[in-house]
C-alpha cells in the first residue's frame, strides 16, 4: 500500500511536469497579449501528432524530432496569430478576452476536426524501442520515457526563464506584459512582441504535446481537457512566474494521483476542476496575477 502510494505520487509528479509545460505557454500568451487562447489544448495536440507523424513516416526518434515539432508549431502559431488573433489585440480588454474566447472555440473545433480527418479518432502514441524501459528504486517504478520528459520539461522551462530574464527581447516581453503603453514608449514594437509571445506559447505547447505522445497517448478530442488543465494550473500557479506555474502543474498532477488512489481514477479530472472553481469564486480578482484587473 505504501509503495503504491509513493508510486502514484511519482506518476503524479511526472505527468504534472507536462501540465506545467502546457500551462506556461497559455499563461505567457495571456500575460503578454491578454488573449485567452482556448485552442491551446488543440495546439498541444498538434505537437503530439507532428511527433507521431515524423516518427511513423520517417522513423525519427521522438526526442530528436523535438526541434522539428517546435518549428512546425511555431509556423502554426504564426498563421493562427496573424490570421485571427492579431485582429483582436487592439480591442478594449473586456471585448478582447470575450472575442478571443469565442474565436478560440471556433479554432479548436476546426483543429479538432482537422485532426479527426488526418489521423482518425483512434488513440495514437509513439512507441519506440525503449518505450517499455523503466528502472526501479525502492520498489517504485520510473519509466525511462516519462523521466526523460520531466527532464526536457524542466530544460524547456529553464531556457524560457533565462530568455525572459536575461535577454533584451525577454525583458521587452516582460515590460509589454506589465504595461504595453509604457513599453511602446521605450521604442518596443509591441505587435512584434505579441507575435513572439504567442509563438513561444505555441512552441511550449508543441513540446508538451510531443512529450504526451511519447509517454501517454493522443486523440483528436484531447484538446479541451488540456486547455482546462492549463487553465487550472495557470490559476494555481499565478501569472508571470514560470516556476510558480511549474509547481502548479506538479500540484495538479499529484492531486489527481491522490484522487485516483483514494476516490477512484474516474474522478481525477473532477478534482482539478473543483479546485479551479473554488479559486475562481474566492479570489476572482487575484486570479491571473493581482495586476490584471
Amino acid at each position: 500500500m505504501h509503495v503504491m502510494l509513493v508510486q502514484s505520487l511519482v506518476f503524479g509528479i511526472l505527468v504534472g511536469a507536462l501540465y506545467g509545460l502546457a500551462a506556461v505557454g497559455l499563461s505567457l500568451v495571456f500575460g503578454v497579449t491578454k488573449l485567452l487562447n482556448v485552442a491551446h489544448g488543440e495546439l498541444l495536440m498538434f505537437g503530439g501528432y507532428a511527433t507521431f507523424w515524423i516518427f511513423t513516416l520517417y522513423g525519427v526518434d521522438p526526442f530528436l524530432a523535438l526541434p522539428v515539432t517546435m518549428i512546425f508549431l511555431i509556423l502554426i502559431g504564426v498563421i493562427v496569430y496573424g490570421l485571427l488573433f492579431a485582429r483582436m489585440v487592439k480591442l478594449s480588454e473586456e471585448t478582447k478576452i470575450q472575442n478571443t474566447l469565442l474565436v478560440g472555440f471556433g479554432l479548436s473545433l476546426i483543429l479538432q476536426n482537422l485532426a479527426l480527418r488526418l489521423w482518425t479518432a483512434d488513440d495514437r502514441g509513439v512507441t519506440t524501442a525503449y518505450s517499455g524501459w523503466a528502472f526501479t528504486l525502492l520498489g517504485v517504478r520510473f519509466p525511462i520515457v516519462r523521466v526523460a520528459s520531466l527532464g526536457i520539461a524542466l530544460a524547456a522551462l529553464g531556457a524560457l526563464h533565462l530568455f525572459l530574464q536575461k535577454t533584451y527581447t525577454g525583458k521587452a516581453i516582460r515590460a509589454t506584459a506589465e504595461d504595453w503603453e509604457a513599453a511602446s514608449l521605450m521604442g518596443i514594437d509591441i505587435h512584434r512582441i505579441y507575435l513572439l509571445a504567442f509563438v513561444l506559447g505555441t512552441a511550449m505547447a508543441g513540446i508538451a504535446g510531443a512529450l504526451v505522445s511519447v509517454g501517454y497517448s493522443i486523440e483528436p478530442n484531447m484538446g479541451l481537457e488540456w486547455t482546462l488543465i492549463a487553465l487550472i494550473v495557470m490559476v494555481l500557479g499565478g501569472l508571470g512566474s514560470i516556476m510558480g506555474t511549474f509547481v502548479g502543474g506538479i500540484v495538479l498532477g499529484v492531486t489527481q494521483a491522490l484522487t485516483s488512489c483514494f476516490i477512484g481514477g474516474t474522478y481525477r479530472e473532477v478534482v482539478g476542476l473543483l479546485i479551479f472553481l473554488l479559486v475562481l469564486i474566492f479570489r476572482p480578482q487575484g486570479l491571473f496575477g493581482a495586476k490584471e484587473r
Binding site: Q98, Y267, L273, L280
Partner: peptide, 24 residues
C-alpha cells in the same frame, strides 16, 4: 460573482464536472 470571461470559463468547468460525474 464572476464577470465576463471568468464567468465563461467557470461555467465551462462546472459543465465538465457534471459531464464526467454523470459518465461515472
Amino acid at each position: 460573482k464572476l464577470r465576463g470571461v471568468y464567468f465563461s470559463i467557470g461555467t465551462l468547468a462546472l459543465a465538465q464536472i457534471l459531464y464526467i460525474t454523470v459518465g461515472n
